[in-house]
């Protein structure tokens, strides 16, 4: 069974981004970039399925600029077998990425696509669901436990009230939540090995996909600032403030 894992290059989760003063976007020049943390969990899960003998091949895919090759190498250092870069400088929105992934699914024929539930830059939380819809496949989003067997996926999902377990026919799309697994650290030998793994490059044109954006960002602004309030000395003073100043209790 082949598993496809899309990975996105994003601003590292430890970086607090700054809005550009001209309001055109956030400043990502000279900022540390990493693999989207949810995608890292997706790669780890796929690799564990391969190690367990369930999957036979793990293919990492990234869509975007040439530097996404680093993200693919990082996925291969965790254990993905090969990488595919869909190389484009165009702004990619989730629908466009879902269409690119659809074209790759038709080409590669995976039994499962495991992806992060959301990217921590645009916080869209759409691509996996969109891909599933375009393929006519079932989906299990926000997964905290995944088992694949006998042409079926059994997935436990984190939902607002707790957990639910779904059974899906394969092929299917699964999106990862935080507690699915803890990704391993790539070891130096595996990082070296990853450099030698195959990495193919394609373009949206070659896949026959129109990636034109549907949404235009008119401006990007700082959120309303919340200023630090005051320190209180003890519980009595806190009670006084909550009762008499804030009037919330």
């Amino acid at each position: 069974m082949k598993i496809l894992v899309p990975v996105k290059r994003v601003v590292d989760y430890n970086v607090k981004v700054r809005v550009k003063s001209d309001g055109t976007g956030v400043d990502i020049a000279n900022v540390k970039m990493s693999m989207n943390p949810f995608d890292e969990i997706a790669v780890e899960e796929a690799v564990r399925l391969k190690e367990a003998g369930v999957a036979t091949e793990v293919v990492a895919v990234s869509c975007g600029v040439a530097a996404c090759q680093e993200t693919l190498r990082a996925a291969m250092a965790i254990g993905a077998d090969r990488g595919i870069l869909v190389d484009t400088d165009a702004e990619l929105q989730p629908l466009a990425v879902a269409k690119l992934l659809k074209a790759l699914c038709e080409k590669e024929g995976p039994q499962a696509v495991i992806c992060g539930k959301q990217a921590i830059d645009d916080d869209a939380n759409q691509t996996g669901q969109m891909l599933a819809a375009l393929m006519g496949w079932p989906q299990a989003t926000f997964a905290s436990k995944v088992a694949l067997a006998d042409g079926k996926a059994t997935v436990t999902r984190e939902i607002d009230g707790g957990l639910e377990t779904l059974e899906l026919s394969l092929p299917a799309v699964i999106t990862t939540d935080l507690r699915l697994n803890e990704p391993r650290y790539a070891t130096l030998p595996n990082i070296m090995k990853a450099k030698k793994k195959p990495l193919d490059t394609l373009t949206p044109d070659a896949l026959g996909v129109d990636v034109a954006p549907r949404l235009t960002t008119l401006s990007v602004a700082e959120p309303p600032k919340r200023s630090a309030g005051e320190r209180v000395a003890d519980v009595a003073q806190l009670m006084d403030k909550l009762k008499n100043v804030a009037k919330v209790i």
Partner: peptide, 23 residues
């Protein structure tokens, strides 16, 4: 934008071939 809406609506958007505006 709850676990239900986030699960269902991107599917709707893709089937209609439109973008989703999240959250």
């Amino acid at each position: 934008a709850t676990s239900l809406g986030k699960n269902v609506l991107p599917r709707v958007a893709a089937l209609l071939d439109v973008a989703q505006i999240s959250d």
